[in-house]
């Protein structure tokens, strides 16, 4: 029973981190109609910068803020240089470019920092809490993860549902021509979308890195699970990303715990296939008629 409980709690903690990655993907998809495969790698680069800041003697939170700020800038810059020229082209191009950028960044990180593993601290204790006499697998850091991811989701909901800016961003993403005709300034909004999404990716990386370790490819698999979560929940829905993240985290935990660790990636694949067979646009996306 304690085994089941611990696995479940572990699954929830993993799921929240996966959800953070998924939220970043959803944000960029909503704002620019693209899936950014380089999101994890961009966050990885930023985390190395945070690591350097941390080792300058600055505290955790200064490094945290520095990472988020760098992430915003990096996202905006990427959009201007790499993504803007692809506007109006086939979505295939954007996929290949972001994927290529992922490879490129991992190579560059390897060239600069090598492939040694570095440990990155957590802001709160990672020791599980005691309830009565048993220690359960949920630490203050896990609480921080849950709160941070919930905050991110709520911010996104407010942005897209409650603000004029969010509405314009969505208009720009899905009907750029119409938006332009209506007087929306398209370019800065697209850039802003990328900046915000990159920052969300950085948050996810900072939540992952204490339990994992800092290497050039530490975000690879997390990105794929984040993608799983986003697809399950619907690439368009922040709530879907959260639920998808939890579903992914728990599936991985149960499959790993009861069937075997090697099956985890296949379990994620099966989850995607099954959920797409049931609802191709994701569980939380509104069914959208296709327009020619």
């Amino acid at each position: 029973m304690q085994f089941f409980l611990n696995i479940t709690l572990g699954g929830i903690a993993t799921g929240m981190i996966v959800a953070a990655v998924a939220l970043g993907l959803v944000l960029i998809f909503r704002a620019t109609n693209i899936v950014n495969f380089a999101q994890g790698a961009m966050a990885m680069m930023t985390t190395y910068i945070a690591y350097a800041v941390l080792h300058q003697g600055s505290g955790y939170w200064l490094a945290f803020v520095a990472a988020l700020a760098t992430g915003l800038l990096f996202g905006a810059l990427t959009q201007v240089v790499l993504i803007r020229p692809l506007q109006g082209k086939s979505p295939l191009n954007a996929i290949i470019v972001t994927f290529g950028f992922l490879i490129f960044l991992e190579g560059v990180a390897g060239a600069i920092w090598g492939s040694q593993t570095r440990t990155y601290p957590a802001p709160f204790s990672e020791a599980g809490q005691k309830i009565g006499n048993t220690q359960i697998a949920f630490s203050p850091f896990d609480v921080f993860v849950v709160l941070a991811v919930l905050a991110l989701m709520i911010l996104m909901l407010v942005l897209f549902r409650g603000t004029d800016l969010g509405l314009r961003m969505r208009a720009v993403a899905f009907a750029p021509e119409t938006a332009r005709l209506l007087g929306v300034r398209v370019r800065p909004l697209l850039t802003l979308g990328w900046a915000l999404s990159a920052a969300a990716g950085v948050l996810a990386a900072l939540l992952v890195v204490p339990t994992s370790s800092l290497t050039p490819n530490f975000m690879d698999v997390i990105l794929i699970y984040g993608f799983t979560a986003a697809v399950v929940g619907g690439l368009d829905s922040p709530v879907g990303a959260l639920v998808g993240g939890l579903a992914t985290g728990l599936s991985l935990a149960y499959v790993g715990g009861y069937l075997g660790g090697s099956l985890e990636p296949m379990a994620a694949l099966a989850l995607v296939i099954v959920s797409l067979m049931i609802r191709p646009e994701g569980l939380f996306a509104r069914p959208a008629p296709r327009r020619v």
């Binding site: 998809f29 899936v35 794929i224 697809v231 990636p265 296949m266 694949l269 995607v272 296939i273 191709p280």
Partner: peptide, 20 residues
């Protein structure tokens, strides 16, 4: 049933998962 990014991600998982 998938387009663009969905398909890309799914095939990425195939490459990652099958060898395991």
């Amino acid at each position: 049933r998938l387009r663009g990014p969905y398909l890309a991600g799914m095939t990425l998982m195939v490459a990652l998962g099958l060898p395991y």
